[in-house]
Design a protein around this nucleic acid. Structure first.
Length: 221
DNA sequence: CCAATGATTGCCT
DNA sequence: GGCAATCATTGGC
């Protein structure tokens, strides 16, 4: 039986999918922090790509003015956020960018974690084709729009199960020390008044695939 | 029905 | 640092 290195990597990762229980945690901020260092994997139409998550943001649903589901706002778009955790929430931003979020908490609580930055691990050639780029520099998967583009994630994938074989998050054993993680306020949510000040963004310190300029550690975390 | 806008990016000066 | 691109979603009429 023929088997390439790439296929072996996919097989190995698929055997280490993060379990449903991880997504059902009631503390979305904790999940956003713990998901750093994990591997996001997509396998669409036989194309396998993977990247290590290096930047996240937590969106605390009903009580978070920055969340699409603030005040339990239920629309066709946000409906998937109310599902049981472990689903993909993908939406179009600025008419151009597809942003990928991980739905968390139990059914009825619309929490989500936005994936804002990742470091390519597998399928870099495919990522270059998808992004129309010619070299694999840090812009390939830096910023939420770029992450989705490189991984081939679009709004049509919103609602996909993160325990499926098409898209999932895996733990490959990579460990982060507490000192390598930084908490900051979130990017682009100035409209959220006092909630814009919450330290809900997490980054791997010094990683080249982290977006934005906010690098201030928040003492509350 | 229709105007306003955004959990951004990349290109310009 | 400034700003245009671009359109699905949203909410008001």
């Amino acid at each position: 039986m023929k088997s390439t290195i790439t296929e072996l990597k996919y097989e190995a990762l698929s055997q280490h999918k993060i379990p449903l229980s991880f997504y059902l945690d009631k503390d979305v901020v904790s999940i956003a922090k713990k998901i750093l260092g994990k591997v996001i994997v997509t396998h669409f139409n036989g194309i396998f790509t993977a990247a290590r998550i290096v930047e996240t943001e937590a969106y605390k649903g009903a009580v978070d003015k920055a969340s699409h589901a603030y005040n339990n706002r239920r629309t066709n778009r946000t409906e998937i956020m109310f599902a049981q955790g472990g689903k993909a929430y993908v939406y179009l931003c600025y008419g151009i960018h597809h942003l990928f979020n991980v739905v968390t908490n139990v059914e009825g609580i619309p929490h989500a974690v936005l994936i804002r930055g990742a470091e390519p691990l597998a399928g870099i050639e495919e990522m270059l084709l998808r992004t129309l780029k010619h070299k694999a520099d840090h812009t390939l998967t830096k910023g939420p729009g770029n992450v989705s583009k490189a991984l081939g994630i679009y709004t049509k994938h919103s609602g996909l199960d993160l325990l499926s074989n098409e898209i999932f998050i895996a733990d490959d054993g990579y460990k982060l020390k507490a000192s390598e993680i930084l908490a900051t306020t979130r990017i682009g949510v100035d409209y959220a008044a006092e909630d814009a000040l919450l330290p809900y963004r997490f980054i791997i310190k010094g990683n080249a695939f982290v977006s934005g300029k906010k690098m201030i550690n928040d003492p509350r975390i």
